[in-house]
């Protein structure tokens, strides 16, 4: 079945700018804030957020790290094939900083739980916020809610949301539906 387009490229730019202005409201000049993108797909969106913030606040340094959560997942040994880890690149300590975790899609909340666990390996943050491009509402298995939401989506278990971002700044969000898929 052909996927439905949830967000097209133009909308994505608008949403990203809106999220950035919301971030600026809360974080001022970002001097005590770090952004952590969750591997693999949250990293690309975190980079997009950083780029847009730098356009709005020229010359301002905005800390960005990539966090891999593979070793902190709660489904190790419950899968047939272990997930391949990705690179973690956090070149600063988050001790005392305000951290914004960024992911593309929030679904069950388990990735974010693992992300918070992994994040603590780099210090004790002053506060943690969560920014997601897509919030799949009513699907949570853990008590985790985002601070900033690009768009909320009501979806079924047999649907899959895919965020496609390319380096040129284009991108879109698609919704795939597979009959009888136990995702």
């Amino acid at each position: 079945m052909r996927p439905a387009t949830l967000i097209d490229s133009e909308h994505l730019t608008l949403i990203t700018r809106r999220l950035c202005y919301q971030l600026i409201e809360n974080h001022d000049d970002f001097s005590n804030t770090a952004i952590l993108g969750l591997q693999p797909r949250g990293v690309a969106y975190a980079r997009r957020i950083q780029k847009t913030l730098q356009e709005i606040l020229p010359g301002q340094e905005i800390l960005l790290g990539n966090l891999d959560i593979t070793f902190h997942r709660d489904d190790f040994r419950r899968r047939d094939i272990p997930l391949a880890p990705n690179q973690t690149e956090v070149n600063f300590l988050i001790e005392g900083k305000k951290v914004i975790l960024v992911d593309d899609v929030l679904y069950t909340g388990r990735t974010i739980r693992a992300g918070m666990d992994a994040m603590l390996s780099f210090g004790r943050p002053a506060a943690v916020e969560l920014l997601v491009l897509i919030d799949r509402r009513f699907q949570r298995q853990l008590p985790i809610e985002p601070t900033y939401i690009g768009r909320s989506v009501d979806s079924y278990d047999n649907q899959r949301v895919e965020v496609k971002l390319d380096a040129e700044g284009e991108g879109k969000v698609l919704l795939y539906t597979t009959p009888n898929n136990n995702e």
Binding site: D68, T70, F71, H72, F76, A84, P85, N86, Q87, T88, L93, D117, A118, L120, S121, F122, G123
Partner: peptide, 20 residues
Amino acid sequence: FDTAQNFKEVINRPIRKVPS
């Protein structure tokens, strides 16, 4: 080797432990 690369990063973190 690919997996070890990631663990090498882990053991150079301030907290060198993962719960796997």
